[in-house]
Computed example of a mutant assay.
Amino acid sequence: MRIIVYGTLRRKQGNSHWMTNAQLLGEHQIEGFQLYSLGHYPGVVPGDGKVICEVYRIDASTLGELDALRTKGGEYKRQLLQTPYGSAWLYVYQRPVAGRQLIDSGDWLLRDEQPEGE
């Protein structure tokens, strides 16, 4: 199975250790979503934009761990998307994003390079 990661699970990010047993298949850009900063981590929601991400092959055990990390309390819900590497799961944020910072670039790694006032 495959998973799409766009924030702290990406390479060299704070939660990348969860991906230790995963195989990076490549980078990808998903359309029809917007990336928001939720503080120390991001969330994607459907919208008019793009999000830069990485696609990994993972085993059932890793998916179970990520589900425990991401879906408890209903904060995220998995959605299956098509990628150049095959279908992959994306964790979509389920709570309101009003008042949250939109990351226009769609790239969590560039979140600190937002123009002033945005």
Rank of each mutant, 00 (worst) to 15 (best):
G99I: 07
G7S: 05
Y41T: 04
L109W: 11
G39Y: 08
E54I: 11
D104E: 13
V44M: 00
L38I: 04
Y6M: 06
G86M: 05
S37C: 03
A88F: 02
A68I: 10
M1H: 12
T20Q: 14
R10Q: 15
Q114G: 06
S37M: 02
G14D: 10
N21Q: 13
I103W: 03
Y91T: 01
T71W: 07
R70S: 11
V92M: 11
L109F: 11
T83W: 08
I103T: 02
Q79G: 07
R10I: 09
G32S: 02
G32A: 01
G7R: 00
V45M: 04
E118S: 13
C53T: 07
L35R: 01
Y56E: 06
E116Q: 13
N21P: 04
C53W: 00
L66A: 10
E65P: 09
Y6T: 03
V97S: 01
M1P: 11
P42S: 07
Y36E: 08
Y41M: 05
V97R: 02
H17T: 09
H17G: 12
A68F: 13
I30G: 01
K50H: 12
G43A: 06
R78I: 05
L110A: 14
S37D: 05
G74Y: 09
S61C: 09
V51G: 10
Y36G: 10
D112K: 14
Q13N: 11
L109R: 15
N15T: 02
E27D: 13
K50P: 03
G64V: 04
G49A: 07
L9I: 08
S87H: 13
P96I: 08
E27K: 13
P84Q: 08
V5M: 04
V5F: 01
R70L: 15
Q34P: 12
T71Q: 13
V55T: 07
G117S: 07
Y36N: 08
G7M: 02
W89S: 12
Y56R: 10
L102P: 02
P46I: 00
L90S: 03
K72F: 12
T62W: 01
G117M: 05
Q101P: 02
Q23S: 10
G32N: 01
A22N: 06
G43Y: 07
L24V: 09
Y91C: 02
R57F: 08
Q34N: 15
A98G: 10
M1F: 11
E118W: 11
Y76L: 06
E65H: 14
T71C: 14
L38H: 00
E65A: 15
R2D: 02
E31D: 06
G32F: 01
V51W: 08
V92S: 10
G39I: 09
G47L: 04
T83G: 07
G64W: 07
G14T: 10
K50L: 11
R111G: 06
D59K: 11
L90V: 06
Q79Y: 14
L90I: 06
P115Y: 00
T20S: 14
F33Y: 15
Q34M: 14
Q82M: 12
V5A: 13
S105R: 04
I52Y: 04
S37E: 00
R2H: 13
I103L: 14
Y36W: 11
D107Y: 05
I3Q: 03
M19K: 03
L80N: 08
Y36K: 09
E54D: 11
L63G: 01
E75G: 06
E113Q: 15
A22M: 07
H17R: 14
Q114W: 03
Y56C: 09
S16D: 15
Q79P: 06
R57I: 06
Q13H: 09
G86H: 05
K50M: 12
